[in-house]
């Protein structure tokens, strides 16, 4: 009983990062205590699983209630409008509808990619000899040489970014996305922002190229909201109406 209580105390303290070294030693030396310990860890796992299940179920129910409310007819007041007003409205609707239909029929993530893609201008020439060679290949638009160079170079954010750009130019969108996400993931882990803005922008552009506006839009919105972002001005000029229209169209 006392030993069990001591194990529970050790468990609670371990969860707060304060377990006792003596007890750790006992766990190594005594298989019976180790066995009880494993059961306790499993019990905590079980509780956390059940807690997560309840949390997810609660959110699911909220989401379902929101969905039900969104489709419920709200009723309303039927307004009387004059016959002439109705005619004018009908004509306006037809004209606007025609224009909207044309836009709707022709717009896509791919068309937005064509509209907004522009090559990245590399204007640095610092670094080691191999970096110089990669930069040279980049300036010469020799994308395969860029990729070959990156493969043998020491991996860092700049290398990943340039590889991503080379992939993008070669229309290897999945590979490009992988490189840009790698830059973002490395920065997220290290807390740095080396090539972060560039990777974010071209990641969004790559998603557009892949007809995945749902992935691109949140990134572009984030850039638009950040005035210090390197690509803020460029993104601010984009038509978010068009982006949302594509989002709607592609969700159908």
């Amino acid at each position: 009983m006392e030993q069990y209580q001591a194990l529970i105390d050790h468990l609670d303290k371990s969860l707060q990062g304060e377990g006792s070294p003596e007890m750790e030693q006992m766990l190594v030396n005594d298989p019976e205590i180790a066995r009880e310990w494993n059961y306790l860890l499993l019990a905590v796992d079980a509780i956390q699983e059940a807690g997560l299940e309840e949390q997810v179920a609660t959110i699911k129910n909220d989401w379902k209630a929101q969905q039900a409310a969104a489709v419920k007819p709200t009723g309303g007041i039927v307004r009387r409008i004059s016959r002439n007003m109705a005619k004018i409205a009908a004509i306006l609707v037809l004209v606007a509808g025609g224009a909207a239909f044309y836009k709707y029929a022709t717009i896509s993530s791919g068309s937005l990619y064509d509209k907004y893609y522009s090559s990245y201008e590399l204007n640095t020439s610092r670094g080691a000899a191999e970096e110089g060679a990669i930069e040279k290949a980049y300036h010469a638009k020799d994308w395969k040489a860029v990729l070959a160079g990156v493969n043998t170079a020491k991996r860092d954010n700049k290398m990943d970014f340039l590889a991503g750009m080379a992939d993008l130019e070669l229309k290897k969108y999945n590979d490009a996305i992988e490189h840009f996400e790698q830059v973002i993931a490395v920065n997220a882990q290290s807390g740095s922002d080396y090539f972060q803005d560039e990777a974010q922008y071209y990641l969004a552009i790559s998603w557009l190229a892949k007809d995945k506006v749902n992935e691109a839009l949140p990134i572009l919105e984030k850039i638009r909201a950040n005035k210090d972002h390197l690509f803020h001005d460029k993104v601010a000029k984009m038509s978010f109406f068009d982006l949302r229209l594509v989002q709607y169209k592609e969700s159908k």
Binding site: Q66, A69, E181, E215, L217, P218, E221, K222
Partner: peptide
């Protein structure tokens, strides 16, 4: 409908 914040995968 209440919309949750938008997230990239990362």
């Amino acid at each position: 409908m209440k919309v949750a914040g938008k997230y990239s995968d990362v």
